[in-house]
Nucleic acid binder design. Sequence first.
DNA 1: TTTTGTGAATTGCTTCACAGCA
DNA 2: TGCTGTGAAGCAATTCACAAAA
Lengths: 214, 214
Amino acid sequence: MAKSDAIPAPTVRRLSLYLRQLELYRETGLRTVSSKQLGESLQLTDAQVRKDLAVFGHLGHPGIGYRVEEMIGRIRRILGTDRVWNVALVGAGNLGRAFASYRGFITKGFNITAVFDADPSKIGTVMPGADPVVVQPVSELAATIGLRNIDLAILAVPMSDAQAIADQCMQAGISGILNFAPMALRVAPGATIINVDLAVHLEQLSFRVCELRR
Amino acid sequence: MAKSDAIPAPTVRRLSLYLRQLELYRETGLRTVSSKQLGESLQLTDAQVRKDLAVFGHLGHPGIGYRVEEMIGRIRRILGTDRVWNVALVGAGNLGRAFASYRGFITKGFNITAVFDADPSKIGTVMPGADPVVVQPVSELAATIGLRNIDLAILAVPMSDAQAIADQCMQAGISGILNFAPMALRVAPGATIINVDLAVHLEQLSFRVCELRR
DNA sequence: TTTTGTGAATTGCTTCACAGCA
DNA sequence: TGCTGTGAAGCAATTCACAAAA
């Protein structure tokens, strides 16, 4: 049945956006929301919103809309963020420091519990964050990942090191990698990699600006 | 005719990836590349690659493939990065510092020529980067954008300030904004906004890991 | 009324498969 | 032979439009 059908990737992306918006609504005290309202907040059609939310089965209430609190719980369950993920951060440079100190991660259920770097001058220093973490050498990566309950890794390392570090992570049993090095990494079976290239986003912006002027 | 047709969004996204890969090929001295090779490097089918590259009209050479150097030029021209964009960075926190010092931006044609922050203790300090820039108060944003030739802005500010800053940027004549605050910003006509939410990427990763285990 | 859920229609993207060129 | 370019086919996502529920 519909329950076990794979959720389309565009829908999953939007689920994250719905969740963010619903959490904003909750802060303002809103209890229910219609597909029309939600769609307007996110620049989507109401039909799109309803189709997306139909992955949960019947959850909306005709004439009323969707209960904010209920939807938040359901979306988190689908996304797998109804729990806390322990995350390893590799790379204690500027980008790494930005991640470690970003409050949004912990409120979303991602807890950076270990930080690694190859630079000896950084090892032993403290990364400020949800709970501050001492920077460890990359050589301790495998052992630490195995010891603590770490499933995800954020890679904020130079391109030249990225594949080697990713391989180490996957060998150590990491299930998912969020890679910020500007290259597509080879992925081992049983693991998942999402590549985020910040320069690519600027290029897309450049294109859209040119397109608008055309 | 085909020339003036809009390029599909998925194709534009992939053009950035082709460009990155082609620049890697160039470094290794490769002169030509087939759609099959390029596809394998990026996990795409050869047909997909050819369809995408067909936006340029006839550029491939049957029996030979595509000339690396030529393709790089063509893609940059389409993306609008065959020139240097002056970019304003708003927010001199950890994330802002990461952008300012990221070498990838300048090699792609994005030059951070001004940095702004609301925090008085940051103003007057120097942000290290391609050419180091002194942090200015946000009050000088409009004047500086008008004075220098600044078309794009990167927003690395708290959610609470993001919309106000974006409005100021657009009023000052900015054409494109890359927003890292975790909310969708309202956009003025004639401007473009791309929203990048780092926590959303982690959620997508979480989902994919759960899915894989299912 | 308002608003959901959903088949049907539509639009858009990807893959196939092959003619044509080097 | 090796490879491109592209119609045609196939598949996926979005939008439409309306019956049903509150």
